[in-house]
Amino acid sequence: MTDTSTREPRHFARMFVLWLVVAGVADALFYTLAGPHVPPGTMTTSAKDNQFDFNVLLVIALPVLIAVWIYMGYAIVMWRSTRKGVAEPVGGAVARGNKGVQFAWIASTSTIVMGLFVFGTVALINGAGSGGGEGPNPVWSPNSKAPLQVQVIGQQWKFTYRYPSFGGFETTQLILPNNTTIEFHVTSLDVTHDFWAYQLGVKADANPQLDNVAYTTTRETGSVTVRCDELCGIWHGAMYNYGRVISPAAFEAWATATQRASVANTKLLPPYALTYVPDANGADGGLYPTNVDPYSASEVYGAKVAAS
């Protein structure tokens, strides 16, 4: 420690200072500049919460990324072999496995991970499922007494929406009232689709014969893009449509008007239900014939005929 000219530079101190500055600046810049614009925006509670979650994760992730990058960059610059051919062996203390470092690494990654788990779980439960599909019996639901039920029906290759509280009419446009808790019931008539209302921060698989519930509460008016997010056949790429969040009064007016205008159509629809069996054989036959008893393969699928 007396001869300063040959003393090893304090590598970790250098890297730490560099890291502190870069990570601090990166975090600050991200959070203030990019953070508010991170998708999916703030149109609903779930969108806003998920945006916040994303930002928190990124604020944690950036210093981790930067720490590794700084270390690697530092190593590449400082600890390269200068000798032609094979470098001389590196011996001494640096060559030994440092138990303290190993322990610290495991402890710190474990702490971060457990913290993230607690954070994610709290966000999930407080967010009433965070806008994700929760199956037919949601375990976490919002406190709202009377959420607006909207059914989302996926089929190859379009989405339609039914409003049970307005006579169960069906539209091709997703119209929602502002400042309202929405209870989406997502189902499918054929294959598995996925209802992704981008700006709403809602995503739920549409499974045939199954009801998948997702919650969100609207906060702002504006337009919404809906895309199918589960591969559903050749026109999957073209399976999208649009919707709007409008003021409650406008919604009321639109809904009652549409209900009245589509009375004739609604009569032709199957009665509102949480799932539908697609009708292949006639008025109420369904795919699986209950009228053949005892069940007979040949009645349903045709008898085996002699091979030609």
């Binding site: 998708p39 999916p40 779930s46 919460d49 998920n50 945006q51 979650d53 994303f54 994760l57 990124l58 992730a61 981790v64 990324l65 590794v68 990058w69 993230l116 954070f119 994610g120 966000a123 999930l124 967010g127 965070s130 806008g131 994700g132 996925d194 992704w196 921060g201 809602v202 995503k203 997010d229 589960e230």
Partner: peptide
């Protein structure tokens, strides 16, 4: 792999996953 791994943690977080799943 650092980028791949860290984004994997994003995906494992259910609320963030709602936004990025399948994208």
């Amino acid at each position: 792999f650092l980028i791949g791994g860290v984004t994997g943690v994003f995906l494992s977080d259910v609320p963030v996953n709602v936004q990025v799943h399948g994208s």
